[in-house]
Write a protein that binds this DNA or RNA. Structure first.
Length: 424
RNA sequence: GGGGGGUUACCGAAGCGGUCAAACGGGUCAGACUGUAAAUCUGAUGGCUCAGGCCUUCGCAGGUUCGAAUCCUGCACCCCCCA
């Protein structure tokens, strides 16, 4: 199957310049392409996964990817898909964010060999560009009537409540110039991105024609949405980030494991690198035995491995086992701390264990019960667990033999309320 | 300004001298079921407890009574009707 057909099968093709031609053009020889990433935060989130994976797919197919971090464009703010004017980020924050993104993007691409990826920051070439110079060289090539017709602009004009600043209006010139710059310096001829980038991409193509008399190309993938129309990668607690400090590998793994049946097939196609036969197989399995959630497991496994590595996946799976019932044993402090990183913990003097710590007091001290009476009720109703083993005895006393590791004891109340007690 | 009604636990709402830590519903928490979903079902739901009880709660402050969420007085707040 041809590469582009593969993309189409994966539902990754939304719009492109010249559909038939693009496929042949890509098959002809290795091409250089780029996608841009906004440094609005110091980490990417699930939404950026799609273009990132797209670059990776192109590279695996023999092309040369450039990941562009928008250190300069980030200072302006892309109005695409935004209903209101953005707040400007300070240069310091921006710089920090760029550093964060570089680290993450680097893990997805291969920086060696004949198709070695590039990581660039448009601030590097924009910073020296004078305003007058920019207006004469770049701005001259943008008819305002064309700019006004772009969706990103149209959506904001004709509304009294939001409006749009001249700064944001100019954004597309910068991104368009990026494309031309990359063409000049890396012979980059294709820009890919989410469907909301179409306007910016075509602006770049136009600029390439005017400034370089060359035919650049563009391609967009659909935005990742759920079957109910909402955005993928958002929870009540906020976005799912790729940074382990913001979204732990466990949370990340869990997010995908909880994917709706209706979305699982699409996610497997769009986000993973599983081969077609396996995906088809998983589709069938989902149909015949949805309760096994084989697709979700594979999806979570595959993405966690990709984003957090083998170690992150192992931790996530271990944590999953534990959070869903497995007894806790044979782990050390460090492993427990990692698995229960998201869980509250409290410290108690170790001497209490030697004397025997009543389970009731332990639950109370761990803040799993507001009062001792509540702790008592919980135990009586069979809702108290130590290291995931049910302790139904109200009079139970905890001793050092109940430690899960060197100094940590894992208490649980009910299905999923956990707390750690550290004995120091 | 006059008349009437109200204020109860996390919320709503019964109770109108003892059997009231206070019905009932919701919520919450546990358990069962289940695909880490939803629904359903069961139990619990002021605190402490040596489990026998003890302590604190029914707008606030006093009082009557052997005994008050319940009666009386004052105060605060809310609602309704008449001016």
């Amino acid at each position: 199957m041809k590469f582009l057909e593969e993309l189409r099968w994966r539902n990754l093709l939304h719009q492109s310049t010249d559909d038939e031609g693009l496929s042949d053009w890509l098959d002809e020889k290795p091409r250089t392409l780029y996608a841009g990433f906004d440094p609005t935060a110091d980490s990417l989130h699930v939404g950026s996964l799609l273009p990132l994976m797209l670059l990776r797919r192109f590279q695996k197919a023999g092309h040369r990817p450039i990941a562009l971090v928008g250190g300069a464009t980030g200072m302006i703010g892309d109005p695409s898909g935004k209903s209101a004017e953005r707040k400007l980020l300070s240069p310091e924050v921006l710089e920090q964010n760029v550093v964060g993104l570089r680290g993450q993007i680097g893990r997805f691409l291969d920086f060696g060999g004949s198709t070695s990826a590039e990581l660039v920051n448009n601030f590097d070439w924009m910073k020296g560009f004078g305003y007058i110079e920019f207006l004469r060289d770049v701005g001259k090539n943008f008819p305002v009537n064309v700019m006004l017709a772009k969706d990103s602009v149209k959506g904001r004009l004709g509304r009294d409540d939001v409006g749009m600043s001249y700064t944001e209006f100019s954004y597309m010139l910068l991104q368009a110039y990026d494309f031309v710059h990359l063409y000049r310096n890396y012979h980059c001829e294709l820009q890919v991105g989410g469907s909301d980038q179409w306007g910016n991409i075509t602006a770049g193509i136009d600029l390439g024609r005017r400034m370089e008399s060359t035919q650049l190309r563009g391609m967009t993938c659909p935005l990742l949405t759920k079957s109910d129309g909402s955005k993928m990668g958002k929870t009540e607690q906020g976005a799912i980030w790729l940074d382990a400090d913001r979204t732990s590998p466990y949370q990340f793994y869990q997010y995908w494991l909880n994917t709706e049946d209706a979305d699982a097939g699409n996610c497997l196609r769009m986000l993973t690198e599983l081969e077609q036969p396996e995906i088809v197989e998983l589709d069938a399995a989902r149909e015949s035995a949805p309760e096994k959630r084989a697709s979700q497991r594979r999806l979570a496994e595959s993405l966690t491995q990709l984003v957090h590595g083998a170690e992150g996946l192992a931790t996530a799976q271990q944590a999953t086992d534990i959070f869903f019932g497995a007894e806790i044993a044979n782990l050390n402090d460090q492993q427990l701390n990692q698995i229960f990183a998201d869980v509250q913990s409290h410290e108690l003097p170790r001497s209490q264990l030697r004397e025997g710590l009543p389970l009731i007091d332990a639950l109370h001290a761990a803040k799993l019960a507001k009062s001792k009476s509540e702790a008592r009720r919980t135990i009586l109703q069979g809702g108290a667990y130590v290291n995931n083993r049910r302790f139904p005895d109200v009079a139970a006393q905890l001793t050092e033999s109940d430690l899960a590791s060197e100094s940590v004891m894992v208490l649980r109340s009910g299905r999923k309320k956990y707390a750690l007690l550290r004995f120091v």
